[in-house]
Design a protein around this nucleic acid. Structure first.
Lengths: 230, 230
DNA sequence: CCAAAAGTGTTTCCTGTACACCCATGG
DNA sequence: CCATGGGTGTACAGGAAACACTTTTGG
């Protein structure tokens, strides 16, 4: 069998979509981007951003495109990774749709509310009210994000281009709903190669000693877990 | 738009497949199940087991079916998890195919060679010779398996129903290509809740004190990393 | 009795954690 | 000069790693 003798009707046809769990941190909460669906099915209910993959489009490309489309986030300043694929036969009433979910971590975006889009603290999301199986996708995304914070240096992708250690710490505190020892956190971050790079500058907000600022390091490097109290 | 007004031709059609990275441990090697493709495309080259998903079949079901089909492994005695989805437009010459890859961990199966299937040590696989993008899928699967061994109690899924601590240790040693301190490994496993359950029986092979046997514990529980020497 | 493998004890070292303390700024 | 947050020093506790040692079998 070669290309010319291939018969497409021999194989079942699926629609393929990407859905995005776009997370950001706006202290003290971890928040997710939700869109109000403008059309059926599930018109008017909240849903994750997403859409159909084009015939010649790579999956990541499709995800990047949707991300830029909905948030205006420049892709190289965000972390984007494949999350999981959801393909239950009954997940969409229209037809058989397989959805490849992506997880995006972005720094606090300018526009809190843009039209029918909204940032919602993940603990405030009414899971019953989400369209399709998006509650499950969201839960998977949050779990992945929390666990990745523990083992990688990805916390920096939630921060502005230039940030202080305290700002980085607030990311972890928001994501986990805990408080961390500032002193130990400081040391731990600086001791981890490739986590942050010093800028040589400082930044002051209100009283107190000005904080040195940093940029994200080069590493997706694994590191011993950032202190996570029981 | 409701179901009756839906127009399938408005959305691009994809084929969806599952591909399986089926791993086992046959000391001292971590091995993968490969099949010689019986038909075009890539006829005669080695490939991962897999196939098209049926229109009303869930993705996991499809993976379970293929696993039972190719290995005869009873599914409840194996670990099966979704790995990653591969969907580059060019990955198959015939048409646009999105493949959902699964990782299976099975205990040493009876039949080493069954027809055109073979178990191959992962370090001996000729990656250039694998069909499609299966080298990439395989690499992802191996990496995932190694990392899961480190943080979970899944090592037991590579063992026979009733096993000794030494047998479990050989799993880790095979997967990582290291040797572990038997004494410390022993303590660590027993100290982790839900890792193994004692049977009360013992087992002897050759000289030396007989070893107590255990069955797999109930937990996918995370645990501090099993000792992995630098 | 000897070799071999299972399993236990013990010491050493390192790292996480808590918390006291010093530093630098705004008001 | 005082309150506030940044940053450093330090002492203690718990766990990992190395390895000596005891136990229980087959030959």
């Amino acid at each position: 069998m070669d290309t010319s003798s291939y018969d497409p009707s021999a194989f079942p046809a699926f629609a393929v979509t990407v859905d995005l769990v776009v997370l950001t941190v706006r202290p003290p909460a971890l928040e997710v981007l939700l869109l109000k669906r403008p059309e059926a099915p599930a018109k008017g209910t909240w849903a994750l951003p997403g859409g159909f993959v084009k015939p010649d489009q790579d999956l990541v490309e499709a995800a990047e495109f949707k991300l830029a489309d909905k948030t205006g986030v420049v892709v190289d300043r965000a972390h984007l990774e494949q999350l999981q694929t959801f393909g239950s036969p009954k997940r969409d009433p229209r037809m058989r749709i397989v959805s490849v979910a992506y997880l995006a971590m972005v720094a606090d975006p300018m526009a809190p509310e843009l039209g029918n889009a909204t940032w919602t603290p993940v603990d405030d999301v009414d899971r019953k009210a989400l369209a399709f199986d998006h509650a499950e996708i969201l839960a998977t995304g949050i779990e992945r994000a929390r666990s990745k914070l523990e083992y990688t240096t990805l916390g920096t992708s939630f921060c502005s281009p230039e940030f202080t250690i305290a700002e980085l710490r607030s990311v972890y505190e928001a994501a986990w709903g805990t408080t961390l020892d500032a002193a130990n956190f400081h040391r731990k971050v600086l001791a981890t190669d490739g986590f942050v790079e010093p800028t040589g500058r400082t930044e002051s907000s209100g009283p107190g000693r000005p904080a040195r600022t940093y940029t994200a390091g080069d590493a997706d490097a694994l590191h011993p877990a950032i202190v996570r109290p029981a």
